[in-house]
Simulated assay, not measured.
Amino acid sequence: MTNSLITHVIGAIDAAPAYEKPFYHLQLKEVFPGGIYAEMMEALPGANHYRALPGRNNENLRDDGSSTRVKIDLFPEYIRHLPAAKRRVWELVGDALRSPGVCAAFMRRLAPALERRFGARHGGVGMYPIPVLTRDIPGYCITPHTDTRWKGITVQLYLPRDEAHPDIGTIFHGRAADGSFTRDTQMRFGPNSGYAFAVGDDSWHSADPVPNDVVTRDSILLTYFVDAGVLRFLRNRGKRVGNFVLNEVRYVTRR
């Protein structure tokens, strides 16, 4: 099952059209087989299984301490508290998205942008994948930013149940000489779709506030962290361990 899912995801990456403006990116569709996507919709966890994702400067936190963005890391140790049927689905998805084959496909398709950042040896740069199931609620937003340089590739896979809110996808920006931003492209928030780009000094993107008529905006953020050098190697794995500890503390204190 995992191998066939990996093959399908790689096929979707290879079939995705690439766009040069406002920065090099892929627009993905039919990322998962239809049957698997339907299972993912039924397996979306309840609110009690997510933990807060505060953001760089706690920008996602409300005055009452709640967060407008929450997450579940798609590693076995994080999803082990889910009911068995839901855990099976997210283990499958997490295993596929962390696979070397999917990473290689993204690196191959994003090679022009990766070469601009890393040079001729871009194909040999290590990447550490962290897939995260995220949920945004009304009020979540983020201003134009390029992502931290710890990241090499950013992928977001949209998980709506239907076509009710196509206009809440991520916005890609150009930047003028005076520092102002243009709204060049907005990703369509449609079922089983998404985008991918190599993080660079031109990869400006943002999200408008999630409107009140949206119950949740669900997606998978698949981030490939640069895994070159001892510092990055230790940092990437240390973050996984640290997040696991926080997750377990949350479950213990909730009882």
Score class of each variant (00 low, 15 high):
203 S>V: 13
114 L>A: 02
11 G>A: 13
77 E>C: 06
210 V>N: 00
237 R>C: 07
162 D>Y: 10
182 T>Y: 02
79 I>D: 02
85 A>V: 13
17 P>F: 15
175 R>K: 04
191 P>T: 13
157 L>I: 04
167 D>N: 11
38 A>Y: 11
172 F>N: 00
241 V>W: 07
97 L>S: 02
166 P>S: 09
8 H>T: 05
167 D>L: 06
182 T>K: 01
91 E>P: 14
122 H>M: 09
218 D>I: 12
223 T>M: 11
190 G>T: 03
59 E>T: 05
241 V>E: 04
223 T>K: 06
197 F>Y: 08
29 K>R: 15
3 N>M: 10
123 G>N: 14
170 T>A: 06
97 L>G: 10
15 A>L: 10
202 D>A: 15
174 G>L: 09
189 F>R: 00
87 R>D: 13
1 M>N: 10
182 T>C: 14
12 A>D: 01
238 G>V: 11
153 I>D: 00
62 R>N: 07
32 F>P: 01
150 W>I: 11
184 D>E: 09
136 D>V: 15
178 D>Q: 12
170 T>L: 02
54 P>V: 01
248 E>Y: 14
189 F>W: 01
189 F>A: 02
6 I>H: 01
125 V>L: 05
50 Y>M: 10
155 V>C: 11
25 H>M: 06
230 V>C: 02
139 G>M: 15
41 M>C: 15
244 F>G: 11
60 N>V: 01
49 H>W: 09
198 A>K: 05
254 R>A: 05
212 N>T: 08
69 R>F: 04
57 N>V: 08
119 G>Y: 03
67 S>T: 10
89 V>A: 13
169 G>K: 00
169 G>C: 05
4 S>T: 14
199 V>W: 08
172 F>A: 02
25 H>R: 09
224 Y>W: 12
79 I>Y: 00
95 D>H: 11
217 R>F: 07
15 A>K: 07
103 C>I: 03
32 F>K: 03
234 L>V: 12
191 P>M: 13
62 R>K: 10
59 E>A: 12
116 R>F: 15
118 F>N: 08
6 I>K: 12
230 V>W: 10
58 N>D: 02
146 T>L: 15
215 V>C: 08
23 F>C: 01
96 A>C: 12
138 P>R: 04
151 K>A: 03
230 V>N: 12
144 P>T: 05
241 V>L: 13
